[in-house]
Design a protein around this nucleic acid. Structure first.
Lengths: 206, 206, 206, 206
DNA sequence: GATGAATGAGCATTCATTCAT
DNA sequence: AATGAATGAATGCTCATTCAT
């Protein structure tokens, strides 16, 4: 019960994160519909009033989950050397490969993402957080595409904005698919197809 | 309240469908999470016990919605002459065009579809109904692809099964995208890109 | 569906009795608490509104069950020759034997009787019907006791009214016991004991 | 509302018992059929959700009532000196006297007992609790009878098991009778008759 | 920081009853 | 005589939230 002084400062943050993670996994299992403040508290081994001490409302907790997820999504990638990405076309392929990596190693992330996406329609807070993440992503892709054009590895004639959207849409599609059917060899093959298709699209003159 | 003679015989069916349609729109607005039997009944102008007369449980009503949606999804397409589809490659493009048509004229359908997809993870009944529809769809696409190969308009070297999955995934992706951001010119452009990409994929030898 | 003319007049009565009997068996299985107008109607193969045509309210139906039960209770006995009962002491023993007979051949009767007895506390109608039956029974026993005294087979010194109550209480006791534990050899032995005890009580001078 | 310092620690237990007692009296008045969670809560002056805080389900509350009743039944007796019971025959008479005492001072107990007995047919939990109490009772009587035989105040020739059943049945009978007609002088007389009859049965060689 | 107790508002479901046909 | 449709009034139960301690 009692903590050492040096732990005390981080204790609150710890519990905060702990509760968010539990909520996250509850959503994976039961969806937003099935998320119960009491269940989260129980799994954390605390009273449900205690949870309200950390998160004033259920909504606050959910926003905590969103933040956690968005951060995870941006952070969790295949570790690789910086110079590997020197070629923009490769970097884009790496994006797909990162997706494959996440799909295999943390499939629940996409379940929560799908739940979140739906909920964002009715929760402006969630919508905003997701929008920011997407903006960051599209910004990154824009940079890659323009680098690629400059490097001469991507054809000049592409419609940059539409291409960004196309790539993001295809990656989202993979995520949704995995939520519906789980990760499979079939999905793996499709990712490979998409990589080929995308590379061809980015390089072949019509 | 008023009843035409020719309507009288189908009253029960009417109310059944009426309730399903109302539930459908409630789901569009508030999601599954926000679906309340009482609200549906109220919007239909009947007592909530009456709703239970038609649908024994909430689940039954929801399954009614699924059935309605699946049927709508399969039925609502751009009306066109039979002979137009004679070319299999065209027919596949028509699939995308139908999608565009649905996206514009009945965007709510995709919202419900997304909700359904998520819920199917926890409701075997829904999962089964959706699976059947998807099976029907993939069956249809398989036919088209093989016709196309036979007609010589699609290259022999494609992996038929993977291609089916790829096309369905891309179409689903469009749906999800529209749920998140609504229909937009951007999405319209992406569809066009996808059509081009797909046709190229189906015809160009590597 | 259509009935012959000679059946028509008794049809209504038939359905009436049919419904009462079904209700009776529903009470046996599920108790008053579990009695549902709809279930009775369903088992009779009619619409529940039809049941309301025959019995305006649930209470009416229940009163029908009481009447049916009380009549059954008074009627169902071991068939025996009139002259067998010439001896009043024998006649009283026959009462116990009839009880044994009913216990074995129609145990459900006592279940309903127990349910009824409890319900009579809150339903004046039931209370009255049961009271009448009990009055008839005590009247009959009184006659037997006085005959017995006159015949010299029962001692003059008994308190007639108290003895009537005692006998009725013991018989009720047997009924309740059978409801709780079902009919058993143990109960059978107790009945025999009670017969002996009662005869001794009625004949032995203290 | 007001709380003494010495009561404070046992508040939860208090409310628990309070709710059980209220439920108990509701059953007396309206039977199991008429027991409403809301009414119990209202009479306790608490929100009905509060009742669910103490008793997760209606069934749990009812089981609480059973437990309470069974304990009351075993505990509530005429206070008497230990040495008074030294004679086993007296002790058995005391059983009847205790019954008379309970009948007069807490007649509702037998109403609930009757309701319980009926309900136990459909509720295994209740059945079990009642069975245990009955087992304890029969065990106690067996001890008395065998003591009596050893002491020479009860004849050796009795069938111990059947006698236990007989005594218990007669006591139950008294209870049921009081439920039906309330406590009366008539019932009082019957108890006296039963005591005499039982003593005679236990002592007289046939 | 943490908790036990309490609650308001709500929810799906049930059921006897009614009524137009 | 019979029924399909409809309903009002409950009913047990749930859940996020609050508050005194």
């Amino acid at each position: 019960m009692r903590k050492h002084a040096d732990e005390a400062s981080s204790t609150k943050q710890d519990r905060h994160t702990e509760l968010v993670k539990i909520a996250y996994h509850e959503i994976v299992e039961k969806g937003f519909e099935g998320l119960r403040i009491r269940d989260v508290a129980a799994k954390a081994g605390v009273n449900n009033a205690t949870l309200h001490y950390y998160f004033r409302t259920k909504e606050t907790l959910i926003h905590g989950v969103v933040q956690y997820l968005m951060q995870e999504f941006t952070t969790q990638r295949i570790p690789r050397e910086n110079n590997e990405e020197s070629n923009a076309l490769n970097a884009i392929r790496y994006e797909f490969e990162d997706m494959r990596f996440r799909l295999k190693s943390m499939p629940e992330m996409f379940t929560v993402l799908a739940e979140l996406s739906l909920r964002s329609r009715r929760d402006a807070g969630i919508a905003e957080m997701m929008k920011q993440t997407k903006l960051g992503w599209s910004h990154y892709l824009r940079g890659l595409l323009m680098d690629g054009i400059e490097q001469g590895v991507i054809r000049k004639s592409i419609d940059v904005e539409a291409t960004i959207d196309l790539i993001m849409l295809q990656m989202s599609a993979i995520g949704y698919q995995s939520v519906e059917l789980g990760y499979s060899d079939g999905l793996d093959r499709i990712i490979s197809l998409l990589i080929v298709q995308t590379e061809r699209f980015l390089t072949d003159e019509d």
